[in-house]
């Protein structure tokens, strides 16, 4: 395998206060590395989009950071300490399809799961815990659905429940896996408003995103990923035609789409 020769392999100056610094991360399934040489510092208080073609390892990057899949090499630090010690500061919004929505729990129950860790081993859920969860649900605009069984929610509402669960946890750093996938426009707007609100509170949010048209509008930082980091940095600098071409190869339709988005951004 040839070593990629580009900017990503340059050594980053790892800052101890960065919400997330990934150092030399490689993940391999079977014989093939899925993502390799990820070396990044994410600055605080940014909305970060992770962009790349299908199979580029976007979700894999999140999961490896969260220790959900084994790493072949590398370390992940959160606010200067090992991730495992900082779990309370990290919130996670998995892909909506990753769970069984027929499960016999209400929306409120799911949101309460966000603070189970704070409740602690074997302790029962009390009224005040539910109050926190209810507030989070109201925050995402579906407070009235708290007692609905989750299978009776629409796709967008389910996504909001997942967001509320992450909110209830009150983390500093959020990982979100395709929160905009298959939701209605109203939910998409609600989510992006919420993300900007989190940002204004100084929190950092990493979002796996697939819609190139909205990248420039939503994120102030992007990571262009195709098994390795093609480019990472402030959207204005990094989200360029050339970088996109390097990320997506010759997939013209996508490039056209992105070009359209770029021209929109300029006008």
């Amino acid at each position: 395998m040839d070593t990629p020769d580009n900017s990503s392999s340059k050594a980053w100056d790892h800052s101890p206060s960065a919400p997330l610094s990934i150092h030399d991360l490689t993940v391999a399934y079977h014989r093939k590395p899925v993502i390799w040489d990820i070396d990044l510092d994410i600055p605080e208080g940014k909305l970060v989009g992770i962009i790349g073609p299908n199979g580029a390892g976007k979700s894999t990057l999140l999961k490896a950071c969260l220790d959900l899949i084994p790493k072949a090499s590398g370390t992940v630090q959160v606010y200067g300490k090992d991730y495992r010690k900082q779990r309370a500061k990290v919130g996670y919004v998995p892909q909506r399809e990753s769970v069984d929505w027929d499960f016999p729990v209400s929306a409120l129950d799911v949101v309460t799961m966000g603070i189970y860790r704070q409740v602690g081993w074997c302790r029962p859920i009390l009224g005040r815990h539910k109050a926190v969860a209810r507030k989070a649900l109201e925050h995402v605009g579906i407070g009235h659905l708290a007692d609905r069984q989750i299978s009776q929610l629409s796709g967008g509402q389910q996504q909001r429940v997942f967001l509320a669960r992450a909110l209830a946890q009150d983390a500093q750093l959020y990982f979100m896996d395709e929160p905009f996938a298959a939701v209605d426009a109203a939910t998409e707007r609600a989510i992006i408003t919420l993300l900007k609100e989190l940002k204004s509170q100084g929190k950092t949010v990493l979002v796996v995103h697939h819609d190139l048209a909205t990248v420039a509008q939503y994120f102030d930082w992007v990571i262009l990923l195709n098994m390795r980091v093609v480019a990472a940095g402030p959207t204005g600098e990094v989200f360029t035609q050339e970088n996109l071409k390097n990320t997506y190869g010759g997939k013209l339709t996508l490039l056209a789409e992105a070009g359209h988005a770029l021209s929109q951004l300029k006008s």
Binding site: D67, R84, R87, F103, D109, Y116, I125
Partner: peptide, 22 residues
């Protein structure tokens, strides 16, 4: 009864549980 909430979380969403450090 003691582990009800842990078991519920595990059954509903194990990868989230893992990300939370359970």
């Amino acid at each position: 009864l003691l582990f009800m909430k842990e078991f519920t979380l595990l059954a509903f969403d194990d990868s989230y549980a893992q990300s939370q450090g359970w």
